[in-house]
Design a protein around this nucleic acid. Structure first.
Lengths: 169, 169
DNA sequence: TTCCTGAGTATAGAAAAGTAAACTCAGGTG
DNA sequence: CACCTGAGTTTACTTTTCTATACTCAGGAA
């Protein structure tokens, strides 16, 4: 046991149970996309919707919540507003995904494939994700930087540069 | 335009905007893990917690919600209960992850890496995920069945066997 | 000028979720 | 026996979300 761990134990603290979890990246991501409708809005952007009325129609989401969620996604830089113009109408705003939003795709694919595996209708999934061109089924996989496929059991979580303990209270 | 698409348009419906979204696998997964605390409980199981008191201590989650979420995770087969026994105490329950729970790891890794990239403290992430043995950094990637790395833009979403349109109302 | 449309904002009541703290329960200890 | 502990349950209160409807606003059309 190293000196730091020993000092913690003397203070009645535990490395795992008394760490500060407020800067956890999972929790931080959930602060942005963890509210109801947010991921579903991104799903629809992904499937091609871009207008306020599109989201309302396909999601059945209340207008006030939809407006709030869209505003937040734009503030966070996950969506951006552009304008479109139908002939005979004035310009109106539409929402498009940004690179920061595209980077959420692995997480959303992970949710999709778990649902496909465990919660699909008997006949199968409602939507299939394919590799354009090659046509093969696409999913989220865990890999290391060297390209090895990694089993969940072989992931080792270690304290990073921003690791902190809770303030003793 | 095929006959089906044409018929839909005649009915004022749109393939994308009037589909039935109730069997979406993303939405179904969120029904299970989309509530507050649920993913964070899984994170702690992943980091080694297993007892009711562990979760309460590290998460600061209200006890009634913790009990509700744990019960639901067990009912869903994501966690399972076992017993442990401290010397001089009676047997008490503990919670362990099941294979169905392990299958959520890609989704959680996806959330983690987005947070690491966009919401980390200036000094870096709080936790690093490494490939045990090789030591290289681990993340969630999108791949097709043939093993190709897939860019988000190259994912094609097509209707699957359970695809349905909304009932016209 | 008045009407129409898409994209919101405003408001209010109902339902669900979250929080805090007190209470229960089972079994082991003194 | 009374007491302690971990693992919950119960209850009361607060906050958020949901639902529904009404209202605004800008610009093109009649």
């Amino acid at each position: 046991m190293d000196a730091r761990t020993e000092a913690l134990q003397d203070a009645g603290m535990d490395f795992r149970l008394d760490r500060d979890t407020s800067n956890c990246s999972i929790a931080r991501t959930l602060e942005v996309v963890g509210e109801k409708w947010t991921i579903l809005i991104l799903r629809e952007v992904w499937y091609g919707s871009s207008r306020f009325g599109d989201f309302e129609r396909v999601l059945g989401c209340p207008r006030n919540l939809l407006a709030t969620r869209l505003r937040m996604l734009v503030e966070e830089g996950i969506l951006a507003t552009e304008t479109y113009k139908e002939p005979g109408s004035r310009s109106r705003p539409k929402y498009v995904i940004t690179p920061k939003g595209v980077d959420l795709v692995p997480a959303v694919m992970g949710l999709l494939q778990w649902g496909d595996r465990y919660r699909a209708d008997p006949e199968g999934p409602a939507v299939l994700a394919r590799h354009r061109g090659c046509g093969a089924h696409v999913d989220a996989q865990i890999r290391c930087e060297r390209g090895h496929a990694v089993q969940a059991e072989d992931i080792e979580s270690v304290p990073g540069p921003a690791f902190r303990m809770k303030l003793a209270g």
